[in-house]
Design a protein around this nucleic acid. Sequence first.
DNA 1: CGTTCATTTGACTTTGTTCAACCCACGTGG
DNA 2: CCACGTGGGTTGAACAAAGTCAAATGAACG
Lengths: 230, 230
Amino acid sequence: MHATMNIESTGLFSAVEPYPRLNESTPEPPRGHPGARRVLHRGQHLFRSGDQVTHVYRVSSGVLKSYLIHQDGDEQIIGFHLLGDLIGCDALAGGSSAFSVVALDTASVTPVTIDTPGFHSPFNSELDHQIHSYMRTEIFRLARLLHLERSGPDARLARFLLDYAAAQSCRGYNRSEFHLPMGRKDLACYIGLAPETVSRIFSRLRDRGILSVENNHIRILDHAALRDVM
Amino acid sequence: MHATMNIESTGLFSAVEPYPRLNESTPEPPRGHPGARRVLHRGQHLFRSGDQVTHVYRVSSGVLKSYLIHQDGDEQIIGFHLLGDLIGCDALAGGSSAFSVVALDTASVTPVTIDTPGFHSPFNSELDHQIHSYMRTEIFRLARLLHLERSGPDARLARFLLDYAAAQSCRGYNRSEFHLPMGRKDLACYIGLAPETVSRIFSRLRDRGILSVENNHIRILDHAALRDVM
DNA sequence: CGTTCATTTGACTTTGTTCAACCCACGTGG
DNA sequence: CCACGTGGGTTGAACAAAGTCAAATGAACG
């Protein structure tokens, strides 16, 4: 008999205080850069696939998405980055990122300085250990996303919403009423459905009294029922 | 204009000399373990989800698969591990693995000792950097697998076969004729189809003269045509 | 030689996409 | 202030395609 630990604890979005804190460079600008905090407006890129990435960033406000364009031309959304999330870890091992990161709305990020505080911790520097754990989480998230792909469309949207609600809750916001930062197309693309299908499911859930939907403002009226959809 | 680097270079299986070599513990047994090399027979587990994982292993023969069982009971295949692949890196950051790893057939692995040679390399120890790059590769593989999920069933199988062929080729084997180590069910599960569908596609490709299929012995008769299927 | 399990094949059903029209909010310019 | 155009979102109907169920075939092994 084994403890069959499942990854269900890790959602489609990062959980509470998502990743261990690194050294935020709040007062002093990092390594001679002009401003510590970088503000991005809707549609602006933090970096693009192939760019050199010199810092790891933490989201300090707003939401970003990372994606990539396949050679067949279609876009694949890798994930959304909420408040507190770390961005750019993947690039560390390779120098350049394989993903592009863009702001969904006005967002800001703060570079995280890469200096190693404790050099002799069991797993080399504390930083490396943290990056490990970040990438680990990322792998689980993708595995979960992959699993989502094998369930029905209603289940996908339900999971998306519940996970998003949980992420909101972790950040101190209302878990039953929130604003979705991404458009239907992005949402649909992320969970692997056609936008029309997503729209239909929203309507269906609204009609069943489980949700209230007006544009991107969502209210979950019945968490239990939503969970049952999955 | 950006260099839109895509991850297509990384396949569904690890490429040549998949991951940077660590210190193999060939002569001396690692940390007082009986034999360095561990042999597993078909169906035997290297470890299970939740187990403490003390070593990183490298596949020295055979093929293994890593998977996990979701709470709804269905199995999700995370990946197959071929000769030279590293197993267990994910566990390093967390102590225990979230995945189970089982041998598809008789297989052997050699533990990789975790001692840090150069402590002051730009990115802390060499080891950490290597593990980074391993996990990075893993993230890309999952992203690619996710992308696969959005294409038609024929394309999925075609990609699977071509990638497997490439992996074989990298290891010095024939890229046009090989033996698939996993059953249809596992194959289907991995690429997200029903076993019957996989069977049908095999037949279709056979009838079109692109493949020769007898049980798990595959011969690719027309690489170009197979590529066109995608 | 017979049992068992995996794979294949066929017929049918379900379901999500596609295509198209429509609605609505918003911004522009007359 | 209102007409207009645009883009995102919703809805409807028809189609295509993969899954499911069930049966047949084939391979492996005692």
